[in-house]
Write a protein that binds this DNA or RNA. Sequence first.
DNA 1: GTTGACCTTGACGTAATCGTCAACCGGACC
DNA 2: GGTCCGGTTGACGATTACGTCAAGGTCAAC
Lengths: 144, 144
Amino acid sequence: MSDTFTISQLAAEFGVTPRALRFYEDRGLLAPARRGQARLYSRRDRARLALILRGKRVGFSLTEIAEMLNLYDLEDGQETQLRTALGKFRAQIAALEAQRRDIEESIAELHRACDFIETSLSERRERVVGRPVIGYAVMPTDRV
Amino acid sequence: MSDTFTISQLAAEFGVTPRALRFYEDRGLLAPARRGQARLYSRRDRARLALILRGKRVGFSLTEIAEMLNLYDLEDGQETQLRTALGKFRAQIAALEAQRRDIEESIAELHRACDFIETSLSERRERVVGRPVIGYAVMPTDRV
DNA sequence: GTTGACCTTGACGTAATCGTCAACCGGACC
DNA sequence: GGTCCGGTTGACGATTACGTCAAGGTCAAC
């Protein structure tokens, strides 16, 4: 496991294309060193990329991710900068927790749907046929 | 609380624009009744919209949401259809659980960052100044 | 010394998800 | 009858996140 990576090594490792990495660089999310013209990614760049991709997976835009990474990069910020960063991070945490609730509700709903299907499959095996199966029985019509 | 809604009532209630609702209809996600030309949304449409928006919030594309809603709409499907739906729902559950893990890791990381900032703010108040604050101390360089 | 693999920049294309604007209609109210 | 409010369709524009060429540089291998 080496200490530097070429663009396609890194791309392959994370399942993205070299084009994507260049794009992230264009947007200020990465800034790999160069050997001549070629990009040379460090472990640090690699860790950054991991953060970027996870950020994407949880639904942040590249712009938002760039902001957060810039906050991470504060080496020796002013107190106000630090406080700003703190506020933003806490806001992100709150947003993520809200999103987690959404996800948990979706999971619960899908579980209900699965139960419903399983029940109707077993009922069907008992020759009880010919009535509605899913419909909106699993869909809340009032609770929003 | 009435039983039917106009397009802008519903849009306002859910914080989207009428344009979006028409768009969802265009993509087959909604199919409100008409009074003349005007759309007339039922409670059922409203519940569907809630599902659509939550689906969006958790990162599904409109196409994916349409598929899932169509699965929900199976009234009296064939056994194979039911089994297919079951498989897809279970896959979605797995995907959502993976996403929840991502979110939890992001939350944990943001918490670490917050702790770090808080510590360096208090250290700063103790007149210990002039050294790096965040940097990549909070960023994993090896664990991916 | 040329082939081939890998890299570069730059320009243009594309899919998803709407926003915006134009032009129009129908009903309520003055 | 005019006007305003809210609704309609349709077309075009904007943004994000890349994909897809095109045209070429570099470097080891044969």
